[in-house]
Amino acid sequence: MAKLRTDQLGRALSGTLAPIYLVSGEEPLLVQEASDAIRNAARAQGFSERELHHIDPSFDWSLLHSSASSLSLFASKKIIELRIANSKPGDKGSRALTEYAGAPADDTILLIVTGKLDNTAQRSKWYKALEGAGVHLATWPIDAAQLPRWIGARMQSAGLTADHGTIELLASRVEGNLLAAAQEIEKLKLLTDDGVITSQLMASVVADSARYDIFTLVDKALAGDARGAVKSLHGLRSEGTDAIAVLWALTRDIRQLLQCAQLIQQGRHKDWAMKQAGVWAKRQGLIGGALNRLGSSQLQLLLRQANGVDRACKGMRNANPWDDLLDLVLSFSGVVSLKPANVRLGLKL
């Protein structure tokens, strides 16, 4: 399987398309944009029909073969998209993907979208079966040091220019949330005629954020301000904020806290652990305070709750994502709304 970086994808899609594309990674914006680019290139070459399947343990993998062997009356080429949330297709999925990779269907592109694929996954049967048949695009998170450069490149592609200090201002505002950065850049495009973004304009845009801000919500949860966090959550919901965006911000900090907690358990100093986990200097007080009240086992349960919210957002659980988010925010803030046993039971629904 040819392995590509995100900056190589455009050129790779300008020629003959591969029969299989695997897009993996934890950064939602990069995964989404890479998948969009593949779909758009396929449509431009006549792949006008698309079938989307969310993979869970109950998925019928025979649908892959039947979908690939049947076309609608209105299309001669098809895109089959498989979204594997946990990056593990299971035994049946492994066999189905192995068989499909051995003889990819004509006039069909198989697009597989997963989370991060670790070394174990890349040694698995299904991954190796795909190696010789398609293309793997692995997306990687943008860390704090890389973020200004990423924002600068994004602004340049949008026809905008700004000096380093102005770009740093936006980087400090979004703190690693690429989706938020992309949205701010789109806003800036509407506010300038000549494409030049001054520090004054950037400061005004940064200050003119939503009344209920996702990052404010997370900071209040980290600080143990349950009342304030819940108020922010209700405000974000009333303003039409996407639940998955709220979940992304909460999950990011929960993962970072868990990494810190595990390093501390290994005997590392808290300050060293936070630096190793990539905690921004100005957030170390908040993160450090949260580490004083949240242990590794609690953080692992929070991650399980976050995974349950994710499945509710995708329709894979019979639950309201915003109700689940409320429980997650309360637990994150230090308020026990449900006993751990009840949380685990709820995640099965």
Rank of each mutant, 00 (worst) to 15 (best):
R173N: 04
D225V: 06
L179T: 11
G235Q: 10
A153Q: 15
A144W: 06
Y212M: 09
W248P: 07
G235S: 08
H164W: 09
E239C: 08
T198W: 07
E168Q: 15
R154S: 13
L169Y: 05
R252Y: 08
V218I: 10
K187C: 07
D194W: 06
N177K: 03
L170W: 00
D213A: 14
E168H: 06
E184P: 00
G235Y: 07
L233Q: 03
L191C: 04
T251I: 06
L188H: 00
V174H: 02
A180W: 00
G240Q: 11
E168A: 13
Q156V: 05
M155F: 00
Q259F: 12
L201W: 01
D194Q: 06
L190I: 02
I254E: 09
A180F: 01
I254F: 06
I185E: 10
I151F: 02
A144E: 15
L236C: 07
I167P: 06
S238H: 08
A210H: 12
I254G: 09
Q256S: 08
Q183A: 01
A245S: 12
Q200S: 13
A171W: 07
C260G: 10
L178V: 02
E168C: 10
I151L: 07
A207C: 08
G228H: 05
A145Y: 03
L188E: 04
T241H: 08
G195Y: 03
I185T: 09
Y212S: 12
Q265N: 13
N177Y: 01
A221W: 03
G165T: 03
K231L: 11
D253E: 15
L190F: 02
D208M: 09
F215Q: 14
A249D: 04
A210I: 05
Q262I: 02
E175W: 00
E168K: 02
D208S: 15
A162P: 11
D208H: 14
D193E: 15
R211G: 06
S232G: 07
V205N: 00
L257F: 07
A261Y: 05
Q259L: 14
T241Q: 12
L188C: 01
L179Y: 00
V230L: 15
Q156S: 15
E239K: 10
W248G: 06
E186R: 01
I244P: 00
A158V: 03
V230Y: 09
